[in-house]
Each structure stands twice: as C-alpha cells, then as structure tokens.
Write a protein that binds this DNA or RNA. Structure first.
Lengths: 203, 203
DNA sequence: CTTATCTTGGACGTACGTGTCTAACTTAAG
DNA sequence: CTTAAGTTAGACACGTACGTCCAAGATAAG
C-alpha cells in the first residue's frame, strides 16, 4: 500500500515493465476464458516463458492478487467517472448499468468464478465489493425515495442485478446475442425488476 | 437404456448396490459444494475408500455421467408431475418455478458449473436440456398467447430465469436468505420479468 | 562500450489426482 | 457352513502443475 516505489538501483529497464504488463493482461484474458488456466497457458498467451512470469510474480496467488487489484482499480475508476448520487435513482441506475456493462464487456473475467473464488487465505471475502458498493448505495437511495421496489430484501435486488449481468455476459460469450442486444436486455430487465411500477398491483 | 438387468450370475449382494448409491449421493452432495472435489473427497463423504468408488464407476468421467443421468431423471420426473401445458401460461409458469425450485433446493449441484462443464468429449453440449425444454415450450406458448413479454429474445428470457434461479440458490447457500424468502423472491422476480404488464408502457 | 537487467532453456524436486493391481479381510447369499 | 461378492489397505506408474535454481544469451541504460 504505502510503497514509495523508490528507484533504489541505478538501472531499471522499461523492458521489464512491458512484459510484466503483458503477463498481467494475458492472465486477465486467459483466466477469463478458462478459470483454471495454468501459468504455462498464461505465459504462452503473454508470449513469454513460464520462468518470466515467476520473475514478476512470485507465485500463482500473487499473480491472482495482482489481477484482482488491477481490475478493482480499473473498475472503480470507470464507475467513478459517472455520477450516481445526484440524478434521480432510475436515471442513476441506467448510468450505472451502462458503465458496469462496459467494464464487464472489457473484462469478461469479472463474471468468472475466478474473482469470487480467488479469496486467498483470510482476505476480505469480497474483493470486488468496492464495485458493488456504489450499487448498494444507489439501491438504498432509490428505496428510501420510494421509486424502487421494496418487496424483497435489498440483497436480493443486488444479487439479481449481478445475476442478470452474468446472464447477459454469457449470452454474448456464447454468441447467442450481440453485445448491443445483451446490453439492452440487461438494462431493460434490471429496470423492470427494480423500479417500482406507477400503480401498485395486488398481492 | 435397454438393459434388462439380467441376473446372469448366481450371487448378487444388495450390499453392493447400497454402497453404489452412497457413492452417487456423496458425489452429488460433494460436487455441489466443491466442483473440483477429488474421488478421494467423494469416497470419504460416502464412507468408503477410493478403490470402492472405482469398483462401481470405472473412471471419474463415468461417475460424472452417472451423476448427470441420475439428476436428469430425477428432475424430469419431478417436472413431469406438474401440468405445464394446459393452464394459462402465468399459472403454468408459477408451477414450473415452484417445482424447479424444489429440485434445485434438493440438488444444489444443478446450479454448479459441474453440470455445464461436465460435457465429456463430443456429447450434447447441454445435458440438462431436457429440464429447460419444458420452460422453453412454456415461454413460447405465453408469447404466442400474448401474455408474456416479447421485447427481447426468447433465449434471453430463458437465461434470465436460470440466472435468477442461480441468484436465489446462492443467497440460500450463503445464508443470506431463508429458503422460503429466496423462493418468493425468485418467483416474484421471474413473473415480473416475464409476464406482460396490463398496460403498455412507453419506451 | 560496458554493465546490469531481463529473458530463455534446461533441469530438478515436490505435491496431488487419476487409474490399476494384488492380497487379505469381511460379509451377505445360497 | 461354504462360497463368491464386496471392501479394504498398500503399493505402483503416470501425468500435470507448481515453484526453484542456474548458466548462457540478448538487450536496454549509463
């Protein structure tokens, strides 16, 4: 965390940083396709050799951690770019859905069990919590203001939104829907599920 | 399929069949919790030793196939018990949801990637298709009769229903919702998503 | 150009899961 | 009780992935 990145030695080659980034990208892409990909697979995808991976990341766990950290940072900044707190909840939700879909499309690994399962030893059980945090706040606000459905628990709403995101991502991955179709279906479905209807229905 | 189960040898011990069933049950339970459980794990859960598993199932793949076959049969018969073709689509969907939730609750492995991933070599890519087939037919009928939403593709509806089932199952598994809560949330959410609203909204 | 960094190839040890075999034992079936 | 079915313990071969070490070659930095 508090690492000043002190250039203590006189020579540092940007050569190294490039291959380090290549390995990280390859890990994200490869693990997104195959959650149990080996270091060998990742190295091949990065165009390097297994030992080079270990030169930058001491262990598989370390690489996994780096992947998750990178994704968390990227996602957080992508979601920070949108304002989700001031617009009316429905509008904010639309923006959140659009932004998060874009991120998921760029990093399909986010929908893979790699992230959830990769909790090393006794780390936080939800590393990607910083991402859903904004959604949680948004849902709470929508409920407080009376424009979001409150029939079921808040957590159910969150998990339903995530689950529909998974479904949309899988449709695209399976080639059964275009990215635009999936995005629209995802958006419409979530809104239909979350936003309270104009007139109250019976039970 | 057409195996007369001929008692060709003079002695057959029901002892064997009991442990065979124990292994199968243990495999279903264990793989439901941990998709990559070893034969050792399954054997331990069954109260036997690894070699005993191999005495009944020649390979891991064979065991997996047996698990899937068993689940397919069980699920099919559970869903055959309900009539999903004659009642009005919404009512039929309610029944389908209730029945399929009961099955999923009994066999959490159905929501695990074990089933989808376990396609051996060039087998059907969807072994559990016989289960969703009924849902597909039901959704088609509801669309034709004009009571189900047609805004997005049929396949999206199916995959959304499955995805919400996953979400509900995970909530229960994580202890965040009771089984009854999850069932209700699942049912309500699917209906809200699938059934056309009384009055057409704008775009 | 010199030097330290980086990558590479080769080899090695370890751990784990699969699948097979065999001999000894328990136990249900006749 | 006798016999064959079934389970067990032990050992083995095999493959795969992880992680480490080292020496040689390529290359960017000064």
């Amino acid at each position: 965390m508090a690492e000043p990145e002190r250039p203590r030695s006189r020579k540092r080659r940007l050569d190294g940083e490039r291959s380090r980034a290549a390995v990280l990208d390859a890990a994200i892409a490869t693990l997104g396709r195959q959650a149990d990909a080996s270091i060998e697979d990742i190295a091949a995808a990065a165009g390097v050799v297994r030992q080079t991976v270990y030169a930058h990341y001491p262990s598989r766990t370390a690489l996994l951690t780096a992947v998750i950290d990178h994704l968390t940072t990227e996602t957080a900044s992508a979601l920070d770019a949108i304002d989700v707190t001031s617009p009316p909840p429905e509008q904010a939700l639309r923006r959140w859905l659009e932004a998060s879909w874009a991120v998921v499309e760029r990093y399909p690994i986010l929908l893979s069990p790699v992230i959830a399962t990769a909790a090393p030893p006794a780390d936080e059980h939800d590393r990607h919590r910083p991402v859903t945090t904004r959604l949680v706040d948004l849902v709470r606000r929508g409920r407080r203001t009376g424009v979001f459905e409150e029939r079921h628990s808040e957590e159910w709403t969150i998990s339903a939104v995530i689950a529909l995101g998974h479904a949309a991502g899988q449709q695209v991955a399976a080639g059964r829907m275009s990215s635009a179709e999936a995005a629209a279906a995802y958006r419409d479905s979530v809104l239909r599920l979350v936003v309270k209807l104009p007139m109250a229905e019976d039970d």
